[in-house]
Amino acid sequence: MPIDKLKKILADFDSSEATEFEYEDADFRVSIKKNGPKTDQEKTDYSDKHILSPLVGTYYDVSPTIQINERVKEGQSLCIIESMKIMNKICAPADLIIRKTYFENGESVEFGSKLFEVDYI
């Protein structure tokens, strides 16, 4: 199968609601699956009012430091998680108000740690 055709299939599959795709012909077989829990996690769950850490690392404030009751726009940086010397910006998934912060500069965070409690606007 030409690579362009495969790329097209992947793109179409990605944007579709389908979670599994299989195709087979005389000399080619492809089987694609969407990882269930992961896609759920990537979507913002507005019922959970917490921003969770997507990785293990060290917490750093952004400048200026995010304040409680501050209004934040979608895409704005909330904090940085440093992992293996890489600075990973954690951004607001939507417009929101910060209600609580859980970490101080330099503290260790685990995968899944609550970073902020928020109210989505």
Binding site: K38, L55, V56, E110
Partner: peptide, 26 residues
Amino acid sequence: AICIGDSSPSDSYLNIPAILEAAKNT
């Protein structure tokens, strides 16, 4: 104990940067 990633092995038990970061971090 330190949580290093999601349940799928590639996100956690096969995730070299996350494991090394957890080791240094602790």
